[in-house]
Design a protein around this nucleic acid. Sequence first.
DNA 1: ATGAAAGCGCTAACAA
DNA 2: TTGTTAGCGCTTTCAT
Lengths: 335, 335
Amino acid sequence: MKKQPAKITSHEVAAEAGVSRSAVSRTFTPGASVAPRTREKILAAANKLGYRPNALARSLIVRRTQLIGLVMAEWENPFYTRMLRLFSERLQDEGYQLVLLTSNTEADADKAVRRLMQYQVDGVIVVSARPSAAAAKECAANGTPLVLVNRQTAGRRTSSVTCDNRRIGEDIVALLAGAGYRRFALLRGDPTAITGADRTDAIRAAVAKIRGARIVADLINTFGYDEGRRAIRDLWQQPERPDAIICSSDLTGLGVLDGARTDLRIDVPDELGVVGLGDIPQSGWTAYQLTTVHLPIDEMIDLAVKDVLARIADPDRSPRPMVANARIVGRASTR
Amino acid sequence: MKKQPAKITSHEVAAEAGVSRSAVSRTFTPGASVAPRTREKILAAANKLGYRPNALARSLIVRRTQLIGLVMAEWENPFYTRMLRLFSERLQDEGYQLVLLTSNTEADADKAVRRLMQYQVDGVIVVSARPSAAAAKECAANGTPLVLVNRQTAGRRTSSVTCDNRRIGEDIVALLAGAGYRRFALLRGDPTAITGADRTDAIRAAVAKIRGARIVADLINTFGYDEGRRAIRDLWQQPERPDAIICSSDLTGLGVLDGARTDLRIDVPDELGVVGLGDIPQSGWTAYQLTTVHLPIDEMIDLAVKDVLARIADPDRSPRPMVANARIVGRASTR
DNA sequence: ATGAAAGCGCTAACAA
DNA sequence: TTGTTAGCGCTTTCAT
């Protein structure tokens, strides 16, 4: 009984089949020229020995790993886990594997990107985190395409996929104002995220244009369900209560809804309108029916994947910002 | 302007620092002996050139990749995405990276495992999918530890982490029977999953022991929210309506709850009791308050990770089945 | 403490 | 079509 089962290499297979290692290599390289008879001999030998080519050794010479690094943040948000799933499935279909790294703090993103580079990933996708300009530069220096999803950098060596955030902001205000709401409260997440800032700016501008409308509260760092639920309590204590709440995530919106309906017995949507962002499945559930912005997740995935793959295939192709189109889904949480 | 920026290798660094490549290697190998002065020269050169050791080339010779393969199924279930997150964070802390593969059909699991082997992962974790005995054997042959989470195999060359499913079943019935429920309906997922089968057996046995109690329905392949919601409608048409529903996932339970309360205006918990499985965050939300079984996710992660790492460190260590302890969380969906 | 040489498992020119 | 040779970037004896 062998303790350390020797790994089978092309060498062993070659010996077994009575050919050279190159022949073995060719047999496992699609489109290489091998005589049918030898190929069969080799396949038989390989099968008998249980041979599997070493993808890492291979990558050393072909200079391609079929590995894509993905840096993930905001695991709490189902929108992003769904994204992860779709990226994984899509890239798998395209013949790539994902190397997954989690970056909880923004500083981690850099470390994650650097680690990925050491593993010679063919490309890097960063979801909802922002690596430093230095890290981006390093990718560029290595010729590794980098694409940011739902985040942008100042640097121009990085591709990014975002939504048309300004328009989202405008659409939300239009919907709410049209339904007669006037006193808006903003529940925002990370105030430094460009994508959120654009939306907020647009909202402010749009509100300013409507007579009688104003923003009565603007809370930042309000991320999840619990925060939303707490926020509505606080807002309801204010001298001037809002009659519409704009959240930067569905999760927050659901928290607000529970806080409003259950804790405070507020009449939604008549006394208070709520809109979320993301259109996660729960928002459509009967218990919630949250009006929200459906983010074009499929389109975003598609743009991101096509961009990395294209830049892998053609290193001279330059990175660029891309924007996908969102649309509002009206439900029972607004009039 | 360089088109194809040459990758910096230890060779370049050695030249720049005026030393040999071995010296460079030693500098980047913790615990190797290098004179402080040379080390500094080398670090300076490396820094200047932006050198990063190639982890793949390294792995070829040290025969360790610091890569762990993870095969993921059931992405719809937040319980499992949470697991993925915890695995990712934990293993990252331990100095490993995850190679993530998705397997939607059971047959895919095999392909996934084989792909991972080609990437020379140090270990494989399969979450809620069941690779074939052949695939498991292949891992064993390569000396790659394999651990199944929430699933088991007949073969004994594989570790597994599950819950004490029989006890869960007994506890659920005890709770419901104690609250006076008698007509049970079972909403199950994959009927071939051993873990679910054990629980179901225990439930049946426990119900049989209670006078007047019986199982009035047993539906299989009922997985998600929508299925749960549809199921309760169907059940309510039956001649004998259940007064308690036991679901094999929280998501199903939430669907049942919405179907019952909203669609059918059933009085929960008096007319109908509902219990889920998993204790996902939503189950605790005010709108739902689903009584459920809290699965010991942290303990499961811990067992799985410790097992892989231990078997990586000591290839002679034999695989084994492990079981973690669940506990029931009583909420408003049962009396 | 350091360098020379060998080799991990593979592919790619090049000849034959 | 096939084998020989060289080498991807790294680590590791083995001398020095």
